[in-house]
């Protein structure tokens, strides 16, 4: 009788073992898909693993990886959703920190910068002495970079290292950038000068020419007692070209700045070797 009892225990535990083995194999399978960057299939297999797993044991790791797959595929909302689920299942502070940082990085990529900055500030308070503060500074710097605020980004990276490559880049971008206000005000005072400042010489000359011509015609009309003509030329033509002149100067400055920023982003994406969001 005793023998039979032992046999039955062995048999039942064998069944349980088979299932556990299956899930272990499934995890390996999903991991291999993840490693080979087949993210769509990896998500399916991780979801399958979670669906058939009776315990919460793998939930942190699985949700974290699902989120990473979504992030890699550019599905940032789904990624943040799964990072948040992973956070619920995190068993230690280090896991929570890792998940929180990933949420912040995804927010940076999603360009929801205010949210990323808010989360960074919260982390600063919540995990005091538990997190390397340089990490917070680093991602805050990245948040400012992606918000196109190179000045604040430079300040953040300077806190890490005076010669940090991103600080140097941010400084050079800042130096290259045009002042939108200056371009506009300059064109306000001398038509075409804002365009000259942004390097659009032809447009600057044209703008100056049009404004001089219509300015002369308007003033001349008033001086020769042709007030109606003066009002007409002044209101319909001169003001139109004058307004267009400083609007153009502003547009050119913004466009140039965008080009400078994009070039820097391209450098960061292709050549920067450090950690990226």
């Amino acid at each position: 009788m005793k023998k039979a009892f032992y046999i039955s225990i062995i048999l039942f535990s064998w069944i349980g073992f088979t299932k556990a083995q299956d899930l272990k194999l499934q995890k390996h399978y999903a991991d291999s898909l993840f490693q080979s960057e087949q993210f769509f299939d990896a998500i399916t297999e991780y979801k399958r693993l979670m669906f058939f797993s009776n315990s919460d044991e793998n939930n942190y790791d699985t949700n974290f990886r699902i989120a990473l797959c979504y992030k890699a595929g550019g599905k940032y909302n789904a990624a943040i959703k799964h990072f948040n689920i992973a956070k619920v299942y995190s068993i230690n502070t280090q896991d929570s920190i890792a998940t929180e940082l990933q949420i912040i990085r995804t927010n940076i990529l999603r360009r929801t910068i205010p949210e990323a900055l808010l989360l960074l500030n919260n982390m600063d308070g919540a995990y005091k002495n538990k997190i390397d503060s340089s990490k917070i500074i680093y991602w805050r710097g990245w948040a400012y970079l992606m918000a196109d605020d190179w000045e604040l980004a430079s300040e953040e990276f300077q806190k890490l290292n005076k010669f940090h490559p991103i600080k140097t880049l941010a400084d050079s971008v800042n130096a290259k950038k045009y002042s939108v206000v200056f371009a506009k005000v300059a064109s306000f005072i001398i038509p075409g000068s804002g365009q000259f400042y942004t390097g659009n010489y032809l447009s600057g000359i044209m703008s100056l020419g049009w404004n001089l011509m219509f300015g002369y015609l308007t003033i001349n009309a008033f001086l020769t007692d042709r007030a109606v003509e003066g009002i007409l030329i002044g209101s319909l033509l001169w003001t139109r070209f004058y307004k267009g002149n400083f609007q153009n100067a502003e547009k050119f400055a913004v466009e140039r700045n965008k080009k400078i920023s994009n070039k820097a982003y391209e450098f960061l994406s292709k050549k920067y070797v450090g950690e990226k969001p």
Partner: peptide, 26 residues
């Protein structure tokens, strides 16, 4: 009693094995 128990155990094992094949194979 011993033989009957072992026989029943065999049946249970066979059936659970079948279930394992259908349910455990994800």
């Amino acid at each position: 009693i011993q033989i009957t128990y072992l026989f029943l155990l065999e049946i249970i094992f066979a059936s659970t094995n079948l279930v394992a094949q259908t349910n455990n194979d994800i």
